[in-house]
Design a protein around this nucleic acid. Structure first.
Length: 289
DNA sequence: AATCCGTGGTG
DNA sequence: TCACCAAGGAT
């Protein structure tokens, strides 16, 4: 028994009115939104996305700007490597695809910052192609409703894609709604912490509920190290300095952001290695371009 | 394949 | 308070 009929009916009634679901929303907007949404909540993405698309309505528009502008416009969305990747993707789309976001999964996968999830999300949501789209929300819904376990497994394409494929209707448009609907269900109802089973359209066919909602067995997935005092925090502080300055940031200014010299140096070297910063102790440091 | 990569909201 | 969580990708 497939979950798609109940999910599709629920989604058409309860899906959020998000920018990327507007009729006529461009494929470029879908690509930008999907990259912004990687590990970043919807509420933080929406305003930044709208500003981004107003400034850079097409890939060639972004490709014509320096990467530093992209990193600044990214502001505090987090993981600024994504801003750099998105800029590089815009250049690649302009050079290799005539400025038009490609439709096929292999071409999308070849773009910087585009992985297994994002490639299929663009092919399905922007172009209406029929593919399974599996993110953490989908994996959690499949784990519970289909497999009957409390927590999703680690991402694995060879397991995730066939499982979601087995839940998709044959029709392209219905399959697209199922992809969006399962994801939305995971985001709004079948949540990680406290699932709202009482208002779930799959309550009566959920394998996990049928099994008595057994607790998770085994180790937690992807335990995050603490942020306070981490290299990530130091990188973030340095990036904030670089974003805020139109002239090179001096070594002395960088020294002021973090007292531990070894950690500071490690963070700065990492940023330079990632292409998020350039410069030297003598000339100071700037964003790329 | 395990680890790294930001930031902010929340129960 | 603080650990958990958030439409992953690259290496």
């Amino acid at each position: 028994m497939s979950i798609s009929p109940a999910v599709n009916a629920w989604f058409r009634e309860n899906g959020r009115d998000l920018p990327w679901r507007r009729p006529g929303f461009p494929a470029w907007g879908t690509l930008v939104s999907e990259i912004m949404l990687q590990q970043t909540p919807v509420v933080r993405v929406v305003p930044r996305l709208e500003q981004w698309l107003e400034r850079w309505p097409t890939p060639p528009d972004l490709a014509a700007s320096p990467a530093s502008d992209a990193v600044r416009a990214w502001e505090r969305l987090g993981y600024p490597r994504r801003a750099l990747a998105l800029h590089a993707a815009a250049v690649a789309i302009t050079d290799r695809h005539g400025g038009v976001v490609p439709e096929d999964v292999p071409s999308l996968l070849a773009l910087p910052g585009v992985g297994d999830y994002t490639a299929r999300a663009v092919a399905v949501f922007a172009y209406g192609h029929r593919h399974p789209v599996v993110d953490t929300n989908v994996r959690r819904v499949l784990a519970r409703a289909v497999e009957g376990v409390a927590e999703p497994w680690a991402p694995r394409a060879t397991r995730d894609l066939p499982l979601m494929e087995s839940q998709l209707p044959a029709d392209d448009e219905e399959a697209r709604v199922t992809n969006a609907g399962v994801m939305e269900l995971g985001a709004l109802v079948c949540t990680a912490r406290a699932p709202l089973c009482d208002s779930c359209p799959l309550l009566e066919q959920c394998a996990w509920v049928a099994a008595g909602r057994p607790a998770h067995v085994g180790p937690r997935l992807r335990v995050q190290p603490r942020f306070e005092g981490s290299d990530r925090q130091v990188r973030g502080l340095i990036m904030a300095e670089l974003r805020a300055s139109d002239i090179p940031v001096t070594s002395a200014e960088i020294e002021r952001v973090w007292t531990d010299a070894a950690q500071r140096d490690r963070a700065l070297a990492g940023l330079i290695r990632d292409g998020l910063a350039t410069g030297s102790p003598d000339e100071g440091y700037t964003l790329p371009d």
